[in-house]
Computed example of a mutant assay.
Amino acid sequence: MALLEVKNLGISFGGLRAVDDFNISIEKGCLYGLIGPNGAGKTTVFNMLTGVYLPTDGSIILDGNNVVGKNPAQICQSGIARTFQNIRLFGKMSVLDNVKVALHNEYSYSLGSGILHLNKYKKTETAMNERALEILKVFDMNEQAHILSSNLPYGKQRKLEIARALATNPKLLLLDEPAAGMNPNETAELMDTISLIRDKFDITILLIEHDMKLVSGICEQLTVLNFGMVLTTGTPEAVLNDPEVVTAYLGE
């Protein structure tokens, strides 16, 4: 059974049909790409998958459970985490604390314990610090744990967003244009990092990306969206050589 099964998903804003009859099936452990021209509806799909938008119709089955109608926090707890096209870090918090914020799905203590610094608080904080540093080490950022996230270079801010999403312990990780704004060297390093975290954390990854070198280099399956509808699905080689896909991107 697929980890994610999306059937006949659609959403309308007033008289505009933004996404129509969207279907996708992603097996556990797959590294899957969702591509298409600007304005094709890709981020709208992500917003429906994460509960930001309520679909007008269709179903989103995650690991056998329909998550349509759940709010973003509930969907995160169900096992879907995401990053954003525009970086959304807590700039005045440390790198470590940005990751620890996302660990509260797994670690908790009472308000009283936190105020009085009781043993439960101390043990939980120690465990959270260790777990956050473990995640940061995967991105080679553990040495920068105590600096402000706003002081990180752009490429590392992108990586920190992924690290924070991983801290929620997701089954499915959604990456919205993770290579946006990166230089070629940073993009090449990101490709290796994405493949590594898929294997190390045993998760499934669905990404939106315009960098076709990255897409063809790491994705195992692709779905192309155009004008809110699926144009084609298949292997990167087949999809990227499809005349309809080439036309959609070139606008011919």
Rank of each mutant, 00 (worst) to 15 (best):
M212K: 04
L118Y: 02
S94A: 09
L62R: 07
M182H: 07
M48Q: 11
S108V: 02
L231P: 05
N226E: 15
V230P: 06
I87W: 04
Y53K: 04
L222R: 01
N71R: 07
L206S: 02
F84W: 12
G234S: 13
L4W: 00
E209R: 00
G10E: 11
L206K: 00
A248E: 05
E106A: 13
L54Y: 11
H146D: 15
Y107S: 05
L240F: 05
P236M: 06
L9M: 13
Y121E: 11
V215I: 14
N183M: 02
S110F: 04
V68S: 09
T233N: 12
D202C: 10
P170D: 06
E125H: 05
V19P: 08
T124L: 03
Y154A: 03
C76A: 15
V230T: 15
V68T: 14
C219A: 15
I60C: 11
T233S: 14
A238L: 13
N151I: 08
S110C: 04
D242M: 01
L175C: 01
P170G: 06
T235N: 10
I35G: 12
Q85K: 07
N183Y: 01
S110I: 04
R198L: 05
M182R: 07
E252T: 14
M48I: 08
H104W: 04
K7Y: 03
N183R: 00
S25Q: 12
N65S: 12
E237M: 10
A165D: 04
D57K: 14
G10W: 06
L207I: 03
A165H: 01
P72E: 09
E177Q: 08
M212S: 06
V138E: 09
R82C: 11
S216G: 06
K171D: 04
L118F: 12
E161T: 02
L111E: 10
D199A: 13
K123W: 00
L103Q: 14
T233H: 09
S12G: 10
G29R: 00
F22S: 08
E252A: 11
I60L: 05
T247I: 12
Y32D: 10
I87L: 14
L207W: 06
C30D: 15
V101I: 15
Q144W: 08
R17D: 15
V95T: 12
L225H: 02
